[in-house]
Design a protein around this nucleic acid. Structure first.
Length: 243
DNA sequence: CGTACTGTTCGGGA
DNA sequence: GTCCCGAACAGTAC
């Protein structure tokens, strides 16, 4: 369940842990001093893009579900435990995910204005980061977590379709105003995605994994560009430059 | 039952 | 140093 909005939703489901003290921690995640964590109080849960951050007074535990990560709240799954956190009242277990120990508070490790769902997100700054990669394919740049933390392959394909930009376009060939539209759309779609989850609704994708373009009915082209699957409409998405 | 996939990191070679 | 590629990780749906 990897894109930013899903992690944000998971944070909401776990917020009842804040204020609780860690009774024990375990798992096979490397480089985590499990024996030194007990007794710490969870002060806050944050997200940065696709990362979930358990913030304690003097350290932070970072969880990234990658492609196949699984978790269970007040429950276990029949597979190898990567990171298990047992609090006074509740517990949470992570499997097949990337879990790391970060000394200190997360503020020293993360640039919050890069995170699409953070109140501090700065769209103009994000456009500037894009502009600095003129030779990159737009479909790659949108997946770069240093540029837009939290954007995944679904959000990428959807915003390119909504804002009518062909995935093979080079960033440097796209007018900055159009880049700004893509960035703003990434934020908008992230929060819409969050609302779908809160409401328990299915995602209403307009191009991703569809057979026909939801706008004009053109057969959707599926092609691997820049190493990831792109779904797009040859008719309504504009190619900037030679691609 | 083979294939694809919401993701990232690492190492090697040009 | 940079860019690009493939491998590795690993669970489930179709």
């Amino acid at each position: 369940m990897p894109e930013g909005p899903q992690m944000y939703y998971l944070k909401e489901q776990l917020d009842m842990l804040v204020g609780q003290t860690l009774k024990s921690a375990g798992g096979d995640a490397p480089d985590i001093p499990f024996d030194k964590l007990s007794g710490a109080m969870l002060t806050e849960i944050r997200t940065f893009g696709k990362e979930l951050l358990f913030c304690f007074e003097s350290f932070t535990l970072r969880v990234h579900l990658m492609l196949f990560g699984k978790y269970a709240v007040n429950d276990t799954l029949p597979r190898k435990l990567r990171l298990g956190l047992e609090f006074e009242e509740d517990d949470v277990n992570f499997y097949a995910s990337s879990c790391k120990y970060i000394g200190g508070r997360p503020d020293n490790h993360y640039h919050w204005p890069s995170d699409l769902m953070n109140p501090a997100f700065d769209a103009a700054e994000a456009v500037n980061r894009l502009v600095k990669k003129p030779g990159a394919l737009i479909c790659d740049a949108l997946l770069n977590q240093d540029i837009l933390a939290g954007a995944g392959n679904k959000i990428k394909n959807e915003i390119l379709h909504i804002r009518r930009v062909h995935p093979r376009s080079r960033v440097g060939e796209i007018p900055p105003s159009r880049l700004r539209e893509l960035v703003d759309e990434a934020v908008r779609l992230s929060f819409r995605y969050l609302e779908w989850q809160r409401a328990g609704e299915e995602n209403d994708w307009k191009i991703y994994k569809r057979k026909e373009c939801s706008r004009d009915g053109t057969t959707v082209t599926k092609e691997e560009i820049g190493g990831r699957s792109c779904y797009f409409c040859e008719r309504c998405q504009e190619l900037f430059g030679e691609g």
